[in-house]
Every structure is written in C-alpha cells, then in structure tokens.
Design a binder for these strands. Structure first.
Lengths: 347, 347
DNA sequence: GTCAAGACCTAAAAGGTTTTCATGTCGGCT
DNA sequence: AGCCGACATGAAAACCTTTTAGGTCTTGAC
C-alpha cells in the first residue's frame, strides 16, 4: 500500500499466486502440484506435504475460472429475480443459497425489476459467464412468460411458475393453503366464516379463496357474506372490510384473510368494534410474515408458505437438471399452519 | 431433448459455440472473428458483417471466463451479507446491484448468517472465483471485525462499518438522523419531547439517541421523562413505553421513536389513551419502513436511512478501489426526512 | 513490369488449470 | 549383472479468448 495524494493505492502489481509459483517454491513441476493438491495418487507422501506447505505459504487458491474453462462446468448458478425488495423472493433466494451453499456452487444475483429488457440483458450476462443453470424467481404467484426452450442451460422457475407447463416450476400450494385455513377454523368449532382477500388480479388471492371454498363445501358450509371480499393487500382494506362485514353479518364467528396484513387490519377493527379475538371471532391470515403476524393483537394464526423450502427444492431440481435429469412440470410445496392466539379451540 | 424413463434429459453434448465455430462458419480465422465482433479496426466492413451474421446464427456469446483469464479482471464482485432476510441488507444490496448493473459487473451473493466459519468459507470461494472486489454488508450498524488487510482484492464495508478505521466503510448517518428527527419536531412547534428507543445493545439505538440529545440541547430543551427509554425493537415495547410515559409525564407533546415499529406501537397506545396524533402529540419514527410507516394510524413521519444510496456509494467506492484509488475511512450518508400525517406544523 | 505502401487477414502465444502420456528412478528378482 | 515392473515426476495439450507480429494481396505510380 503506497499513499498518493492522500489516497491509498491498492496493491495492483501483485497477481494472485498460481500453480507455477507453488511449483517453483516447492521445486517440482506444475503437474505434480496439481495432483498433490487435488489428492490424486502417484504422488509421494513427502512430496505432497512439501507442495501443501508451499501452497499454504503463498496463500494459493486455485483459479476456478481456469478450472471451469477446462471442465465446462463453472460451479455457478444465476438467480434472476424480479422483486428483490419484495417480501417473497428473499426467502426463496435464501433457500436456494442454502441448498447451494453446502456444495461448491456460487450464486449470481440479478434483479430485473419487472423489466423484460433488463431481464434479457441479465440473461445474456449470465450466459456469457457460463452459468451451469438458472433459477427465475417471480414477484407474484401469477404465471410468468417462459425464458424459452433454446437456452443452453436448464432453468427452474420458483414462486411464480412458468406459463409453459413443460418448464420446471416450484410453487407454494396456495389452493391447499386456503383449504388448510378453513379446516383449522372449522376444527376450532367455527362455522360462520367470512373471507377477506386482497387484489383479485393476484393468482395467490384467487387460489387461496378457491381452496377455502372447496373446504367449506366439504363441510357443507357457506361463506358468510355470500362471497369472497376482494380488495387490496393493506391493513386499511382489512379494517374497512371488517366494518362492512360486521354491519351486514354480525353473526360471523371467524374471518379468514388473504394475507397477514389484511388480517392485522381485521384484528384492529374487531377490537375497536368490541369483539373479542379469539373469544367471539377467530382470525387467520396467510404468509406468516413474522413481523406482522407476531406483533398482532393478539398474535395471529396464519399459514406459512414455506418459501425457503420452495427455494431449496428449486435448487435441488436445478442440480438434478444440470446432471441431466430434468423433472418438467409444476411442483407444489405444501404449506404449514402456524397457530398463535388469534384462533383457539372452542369446541 | 430426449425422454428417458419419463425423465427428460437436458441436452448435454452441445457445448456453447466458441470463436472457432463462428470462424469456421464465416470462413475466416479466429483472430478475425475476435476483431470483427469487438469493433476492432483492420477488418473489412463486408467481412465484419459476414462474421456478425455467423455469430448471430450460432447464438454466440463470448466466454467471459476466458476473457477474465487473460485480462486478470473478471468483472465480478462478491457481496457478503450477514442477514439476507433482514430488512437492512436488502436495500444496500439493491443499491449496489443498481450501481453495478449499468456496467458489465455481476454480483456473487453469499449469506454468512452471522457465522464466522461460514464467512471464511464464502470468502475463500469468492477469492477462488477471482472476484475483483468485495462488499461486506452487516446486519446491524455495530462495527464488525475486519476481514483483514492481506486480501488480494479491495473491500468496502456497508451498513456495518469495519472496526479497523483504515478500511473503507459506508454507513447511514445515525447521529444526524437523530438530530434531524428532533429538529423536525421542534420546527413543528413541539418542545416537550420524549424519546423511546430499542435495544441499547444496538449502535443504531445509541447513535440516534445521541443525535437527538445534541439537537435538544441546541434548543436548550430537555428530554421529557429525563432520559431515553431503551427497550426492544417491537410494537409492544412502543405501546408499553407510551403508557408509562403518559402516566408519568402527561404534558408530553411529541415522541421520537428509535424505529418505525416502536413508533407504530406508540401511535396505537396514544390513540387508545384518547390522545390525538398529530393534534395533541406528534410522533416520528426511524427507518421509513414503508410497510409499517405508511400503514400507521395516522401514517407515520419518519427518517429514511437512504440505504440504497449506501449501497450505491459502496459500489462506487469499490469500483474506484479496483482501479487503484481507495478512500479509507468512514463515509456517512445523510438521511432524509419523510413527512406523513403523524407530525404537522402547529406553529 | 516492378516496387512501395497499405489494407486485410492469420498464426501463435499467453493466461491457469487438469489430464494424458512419456520419461525417469529404484528395488527386487533371476 | 541384467531386467522387469512399480511408482514418481514432468512435458505438453486442451479449454477459449485477445493481442502482437508477421504474412499475403491489392493498388497505384513509375
């Protein structure tokens, strides 16, 4: 480190050590170093030790680029997301990183921000870097347009499935989640159940509601209010919808909500209307957004989408595909009930 | 794609096209193809077109690994985070991706999850991949242990500064943020101001409180309640603290909170105590956590930490360092006031 | 018809690693 | 003593791109 005009220079002359440097220090050939460090046979134990010492002293790390050039595998995967700030792509990303992290795969992260042009740009960059495969994470559960069939590497779609059913997609089972919510409310002894959901443009809203309706009819029950209340993914909508609901259908004894945020609003409106939760009314949400659900008054029972599992599954499927074994189609990850105080067994 | 036992095989025999393939198709030498595609001179226009057509037809993309092997630059940067699910590393990461995205740099994402072993593991992996530089993102603003001086590439610490002051760090100006909050409350005509913060183990809590105290003494004011109320980063703590505060110091006319979550709890407790916000009491938070702040009742005035700017700045500093110009020390990013309804000019 | 000067193109080397094959050494056996 | 085989080591090719130096061909002028 030299200092130039108050600005420190980063040492640039020093290139990282190579096999050649290690070979020179150990007094053997390059080939021997390679074999010694990679645990190959036909190296005398004494020589191996000598080489390892030299490598250690030089802080040698093999150049994975050169390895990849030779082997055709880079040990690298592209993660193309569309909503990095969003709540949903992050856990998927975590799960994927998790599954890869164990091995020797590194992840390139790219955020297209919903812009098709940017997505193409990133796609080209990733292919130039010779990634072994791609995971595409959507920002909604709505099916998204496929990247196409003519890519030189396998692709797995996570959270948002591909519209092309012959692609490999991994998603949370939203229909099952809706069923699960209703089953839980019923098992708590509730029968006069209303459903408040979010923006109807979201497949997640429709799928969850569909599952709920299936479960209700399985118990020969009908929805209080006659239909699903679609609105927005906000607390304000949850509060407003509950006020309307209480005015029209005061007999309601349970409310299933399309998201934890909506449920949170519902909890507030119920409390302010003098209804006790879970005594008078049970409330259940969706997503298990820890921060919303756990801070509710009372804490909110909800359905966890197991997004990290989605990510892990996507990573595993991608690995398999890289090894030549693809499993096209839609892979559903089951959801989990997380019980907190907003529902309780009243039997 | 062939089908084997119900499992589709990914075409593996096909290696991506190389310069050689393009050269063969265009009927020229490899060198000519390289020059033609890279806009170098000494290529006839006609030849260039011929080559470009061939490259297009083969879907040729240059192998960046081979380029990097030659140039010593990989156009690759490592992003080592410690809290992927956390609220704070993501915007930093976004800003960095933003700054890089324009150029031709790709980002390797690694999450160490606060585990030093895992961090070392990822560090080795990144260095093996010959990244040109590293950004280290913390999960708290508390200073973190340095990666050390003997790395072959420059490092920039973001959000959490390095303990070693000769490292390059970029952080939000938390002290300034605390000042800014108080200045705003004062400019709203408030003078009986209380401060409720989070866990005192967090540097962010202490720094913000310090700034607040500085600003107060600048106006010859004292804190209502006599001291900063430290507690937890939760709504519940915000509610509890406000109840205590109202009991002991009913004259309070403004509450500054260490986070939006605490402020959210404060809002609820104030409303339930019959105090009007912002009529009787002004409330201000920290972080501009959109989802908490905007959904407050009323929506919450808060201080934005400009984390994306932190990320962008970190990326720019890293670029400069890669080019040999490092700027050691702590770089403070100013924060921004975001006014919503929970404070209002009462003059 | 010859020569010089350009213009265009190609051969070859470099970058770091792995792998194959050839070379070299040594002990043991006949 | 002479040979064989086992074993350790080294030289070189391959992966893909860029760059340098040199080679070929055209063109215009004499």
């Amino acid at each position: 480190m030299g200092t130039v005009g108050g600005v420190e220079m980063h040492e640039n002359g020093t290139r990282p050590p190579t096999l050649k440097d290690v070979a020179a220090l150990a007094g053997v050939s390059i080939a021997t170093v390679s074999k010694a460090l990679n645990g190959r046979e036909h190296v005398r134990a004494e020589t191996r030790t000598k080489v390892q010492d030299a490598a250690e002293k030089l802080n040698f790390l093999p150049n994975v680029l050169a390895q990849g050039l030779l082997s055709g595998r880079t040990g690298t995967v592209g993660l193309l997301t569309n909503d990095l700030v969003g709540r949903f792509s992050i856990p998927v990303l975590m799960g994927a990183e998790d599954a890869f992290g164990a091995g020797s795969t590194s992840v390139f992260l790219c955020d297209a921000r919903g812009d098709a042009i940017r997505e193409q740009h990133h796609l080209r960059a990733l292919l130039s870097r010779r990634v072994d495969g791609l995971i595409v994470v959507g920002d909604r559960t709505n099916p998204r347009v496929s990247l196409g069939k003519d890519l030189p590497v396998p692709v797995v779609y996570a959270y948002a499935p591909s519209m092309d059913e012959s692609d490999t997609s991994v998603v949370s089972d939203n229909v099952g989640a809706g069923r699960q919510a209703i089953e839980h409310l019923v098992s708590c002894g509730r029968s006069r159940i209303a459903y408040i959901s979010g923006n109807i443009d979201y497949a997640a809203a429709r799928d969850r509601a569909q599952g709920a309706l299936e479960a209700l009819s399985g118990h020969s029950l009908e929805l209080v209010g006659g239909e699903v209340y679609y609105g927005a993914w906000s607390e304000a909508w949850g509060r407003g919808a509950v006020r309307t609901l209480l005015a029209r259908n005061p007999e309601v004894d349970a409310i299933a909500c399309g998201s934890d945020q909506i449920a949170r609003g519902a909890l507030d409106a119920l409390r302010e209307a003098g209804r006790n939760v879970p005594g008078d009314v049970s409330v259940i949400g969706h997503d298990n957004w820890e921060l919303i659900a756990a801070q509710g008054r009372p804490p909110l029972t909800t359905i966890d989408m197991n997004l990290e599992r989605v990510g892990r599954k996507a990573a595993k499927l991608l690995f398999a595909a890289i090894d030549g074994k693809t499993s096209p189609g839609l892979h559903n990850i089951p959801t989990s009930l997380v019980t907190r105080e907003s529902t309780s067994l009243t039997h």
